[in-house]
Simulated scan of single mutants.
Amino acid sequence: MIDLHYWPTPNGKKVTILLEELGMPYRIVPVNIGRGDQFTPEFLEMNPNHRMPVMVDNAPADGGKPLAVFESGAIMLYLAEKAGKFYPQDLRGKAEVNEWLIWQMANQGPKSGECGHFRRVDQKEYGDQTYAITRFTDEVNRLYGVLNNRLHKHQYLAGGQYTIADMICYPWTVNWKFQGQDIEEFKHFKRWFEEMGARPAVQKGMAVGAELSVDNTKLPPEEQARIRKMLYNQRARPVPA
Results as ranks from 00 to 15, higher is better:
residue 3 D to G: 03
residue 5 H to G: 07
residue 8 P to V: 12
residue 12 G to K: 02
residue 12 G to T: 02
residue 16 T to Q: 03
residue 17 I to P: 00
residue 18 L to D: 01
residue 18 L to N: 00
residue 19 L to E: 05
residue 20 E to S: 03
residue 22 L to M: 05
residue 23 G to C: 11
residue 26 Y to Q: 05
residue 30 P to G: 04
residue 30 P to M: 06
residue 32 N to M: 07
residue 38 Q to T: 10
residue 42 E to Q: 15
residue 42 E to S: 09
residue 42 E to W: 12
residue 42 E to F: 13
residue 47 N to I: 04
residue 47 N to G: 01
residue 48 P to Q: 08
residue 49 N to D: 09
residue 49 N to H: 13
residue 50 H to Y: 14
residue 51 R to L: 09
residue 53 P to L: 00
residue 57 D to H: 06
residue 57 D to Y: 04
residue 58 N to Q: 14
residue 61 A to M: 09
residue 65 K to I: 03
residue 65 K to A: 06
residue 68 A to Y: 03
residue 69 V to F: 05
residue 71 E to D: 11
residue 71 E to T: 11
residue 72 S to F: 06
residue 72 S to H: 03
residue 73 G to T: 14
residue 73 G to K: 14
residue 73 G to M: 13
residue 76 M to R: 07
residue 78 Y to E: 03
residue 86 F to N: 04
residue 87 Y to L: 07
residue 88 P to I: 02
residue 90 D to E: 00
residue 91 L to N: 11
residue 94 K to G: 05
residue 95 A to Q: 01
residue 98 N to S: 07
residue 100 W to L: 01
residue 102 I to K: 12
residue 105 M to Y: 08
residue 108 Q to E: 11
residue 111 K to P: 13
residue 118 F to S: 04
residue 119 R to L: 03
residue 119 R to G: 01
residue 121 V to L: 08
residue 121 V to Y: 08
residue 122 D to L: 05
residue 127 G to E: 14
residue 128 D to V: 05
residue 133 I to V: 14
residue 134 T to P: 10
residue 137 T to L: 10
residue 139 E to R: 14
residue 147 L to Q: 10
residue 151 L to P: 00
residue 152 H to A: 14
residue 154 H to N: 06
residue 156 Y to P: 00
residue 161 Q to K: 04
residue 166 D to F: 02
residue 168 I to N: 06
residue 169 C to W: 13
residue 177 K to Q: 15
residue 179 Q to V: 09
residue 182 D to M: 11
residue 183 I to M: 15
residue 184 E to P: 04
residue 184 E to F: 08
residue 184 E to A: 14
residue 186 F to M: 02
residue 187 K to D: 12
residue 188 H to I: 00
residue 189 F to Q: 07
residue 196 M to S: 02
residue 197 G to R: 12
residue 201 A to V: 12
residue 203 Q to L: 04
residue 204 K to P: 01
residue 206 M to N: 06
residue 208 V to R: 06
residue 212 L to A: 09
residue 212 L to Y: 13
residue 217 T to P: 07
residue 219 L to F: 11
residue 219 L to S: 10
residue 220 P to Q: 15
residue 222 E to A: 15
residue 223 E to M: 11
residue 225 A to L: 13
residue 226 R to M: 00
residue 229 K to I: 14
residue 231 L to V: 15
residue 231 L to M: 14
residue 232 Y to S: 08
residue 237 R to K: 09
residue 240 P to E: 02
